[in-house]
């Protein structure tokens, strides 16, 4: 099993069959959540907070793009 390769295949398939899995970018989340995601993106979230935010993003993939942008901004 080649993890990266297999996951890429499944991702491409689901992008065509279920585009909602990417989550529509809803812009900026509410201020309180944005602050938590910013802290997460900067590597400052404790394990329990990471788990809590991961659960939130599983239910609300529309905020995934915000987190990704925050990570990229800090990595640049």
């Amino acid at each position: 099993m080649n993890t990266e390769h297999d996951l890429a295949i499944l991702t491409q398939f689901l992008r065509r069959m279920a585009p909602e899995i990417e989550g529509h970018d809803a812009g900026d989340p509410p201020a309180e959540l944005a602050a938590r995601l910013d802290a997460f993106a900067s590597g400052k979230a404790a394990p329990a907070e990471r788990a809590a935010l991961a659960a939130t993003l599983k239910e609300h993939p529309e905020w995934l793009s915000y987190l990704a942008r925050a990570i990229r901004t800090r990595a640049a």
Binding site: L7, A51, A55, L57, K58, L64, L67, A68, I71, R72
Partner: peptide, 20 residues
């Protein structure tokens, strides 16, 4: 949820492994 988030950030948002 955490494994799914890592997978989504990596594959859908193209976040690099070192940044994760």
């Amino acid at each position: 949820a955490e494994a799914l988030l890592i997978m989504r950030l990596s594959l859908l948002q193209d976040i690099k492994q070192r940044d994760l």
